[in-house]
């Protein structure tokens, strides 16, 4: 589904990613872990096309297409979803409006009719229960005045409705208490399927207790320095990042 080869990227004059290689097949759940400043969030930003990053080398093929050449919205419509670490507040735009506009953009992209208003409402109400959110959230401005946990749940709600093929979660566990974390994890787990892949970016092993990854990768100094199964996360937790950072040097 996604193939990253020798990806180098920089912000301004600072190079951050220095040759990342990663293969994600349909249905797989990958976790990227690593110390602060290793380039974890940069990876998700580059994949989603956030402005300000310069890819200096390497390529990314998503479903046979050159992902890096696509506009951010085309990536999104093609099924690449990023749950933001810091979801943006958009005063004046209601949540439900955004959801509908986004869903219709995807449907149009796929040659489908716009969604029927009633069907849409049924769909949204169905999904919102999954995230244990109040319906009132739908009518509030996107993320405005939301607590940290509410923002993160809102991101997963969007994923649940847009049904992406590749779902990237950028530090989705940060700022969540354990109850909120369980709800978010339940939401994510309910989205797992044979043809949907996940790329979870996290600093802590905690999230992986609830969303069990197939693969764990350690990103340090802009490169993946170690890969393994779910057990690698536990090992990291026990030994600390110095353990792998040492290997990178």
């Amino acid at each position: 589904m996604l193939s990253i080869e020798n990806l180098h990227a920089s912000v301004g004059d600072t190079s951050i990613l220095k040759g990342v290689n990663l293969q994600i097949n349909p249905g797989e759940v990958h976790a990227i872990m690593g110390p602060n400043g290793a380039g974890k969030s940069t990876l998700s930003h580059v994949l989603s096309g956030k402005p300000g990053y310069i890819v200096t080398e390497g390529k990314v093929i998503y479903k046979g297409q050159n992902l890096l050449e696509m506009e951010p919205e085309l990536r999104a419509r093609a099924g690449v979803f990023l749950a933001f670490q810091y979801p943006v507040e958009i005063p004046g735009v209601s949540n439900i409006y955004l959801l509908k506009a986004a869903l219709n953009a995807i449907r149009k992209h796929n040659g489908l009719e716009e969604v029927d208003a009633m069907d849409f409402l049924t769909l949204v109400k169905d999904k919102i229960k999954l995230l244990q959110m109040d319906e009132k959230f739908l009518y509030r401005a996107v993320n405005e005045g939301f607590s940290g946990g509410e923002k993160k749940r809102n991101e997963i709600l969007q994923a649940a409705i847009l049904e992406p093929a590749l779902c990237m979660l950028d530090e989705t566990d940060s700022g969540l208490d354990i109850d909120a974390l369980k709800i978010v994890a339940d939401g994510v787990n309910s989205l797992r399927s044979e043809d949907r892949s996940f790329l979870m970016i996290t600093h802590y092993q905690r999230l992986l207790d609830y969303i069990k990854p197939d693969f764990v990768h350690v990103l340090a100094h802009g490169k993946i320095v170690k890969s393994g199964g779910a057990e690698l996360a536990l090992e990291l937790e026990a030994k600390g990042y110095q353990w792998v950072e040492g290997q990178a040097a």
Binding site: P51, E71, A101, A102, A105, L162
Partner: peptide, 15 residues
């Protein structure tokens, strides 16, 4: 706000 523009783009809307 350019951050908001990107957020909406990442939610499938064209610029």
């Amino acid at each position: 706000d350019e951050k908001s523009v990107f957020y909406l783009q990442s939610r499938c809307l064209d610029e």
